[in-house]
Amino acid sequence: MTGPALISVLAVWVVGWFINARLAVSRMSDARIIRVLVPVIFGLTLLLIWELLVRMTGVSPIVLPPPSMIAERFANSLPILWVDFEQTIVKGAMTGYVIGMICAFAVAVLADRSDFLTRGILPVGGFMAALPIVGIAPIFVKWLGSDWESKAAVVAVMVFFPILVNIVAGLRDTSAMQRDLMRTYGAGYWQTLFKLRLPAAMPFIFNGLKIATTLALIGAIVAEFFGSPTVGMGFRISTSVGRLALDMVWAEIVVAAIAGSTLYGAVAWIEGRVTFWHPSQRK
């Protein structure tokens, strides 16, 4: 590494860190604005260092495109990025997510009536959730064709198990006292389910739904590595990697990051509305 490059990188780091260290111990450090500002400064510092490293040292921008180049590529490829987003996120990931969620709810409610079944489903479902299920992608592509239907199926299977396990576990998570109370009212199964057990299970259920948003995106993108029409984020990533158009790959990853945090944020927002009563949500 050349001397000027090293010095300027170090300088950026020191300045960025100095600002953050001061902000973090300042009297205002609990203010919302500071809490947002500090990670943003940190992120910008890293981006600046990245940019400087690529520009001032001999690294080829083809191998490691600087942030400015990625931003430019992003801005110039919006139409392509948008159709890829539609194909992979809207059609593949979100359809699969909804299907998997509905199936998980159906199975959970069916199994819930039998203690025997729930005791079997919890460990088996937990076990399945830890397996590399993305691997079924080539099989589903064979069965359902290379368009988004096969991706939605992969996503549905991937999100099914974590959601199922969380619903079943959540439905079991009522205290003996709460169940006794319902018994003193002579409440039936469905009344207990809707008035007590489902509301009490909501924090668990949303935990499963949040884990599943990330899984859905992973499933939809990775499944495209096994075959897709000539559109989609996974398709674009694998072909662009092949052509060494890494700025395009980065642009797709930016899309994936925005989509991932937006979906997660949306589920978390609904969670906040639904489980406002839970200690973790109270201010």
Partner: peptide, 25 residues
């Protein structure tokens, strides 16, 4: 029946909690 702990449902208001047995019945 009144239990050792109040055992109110945190997702219901006080009024909603008192209403619970009435809804069930």
């Amino acid at each position: 029946y009144v239990f050792q702990a109040a055992g109110l449902y945190p997702w219901r208001t006080i009024g909603g909690n008192v209403k619970l047995p009435l809804e069930i019945m």
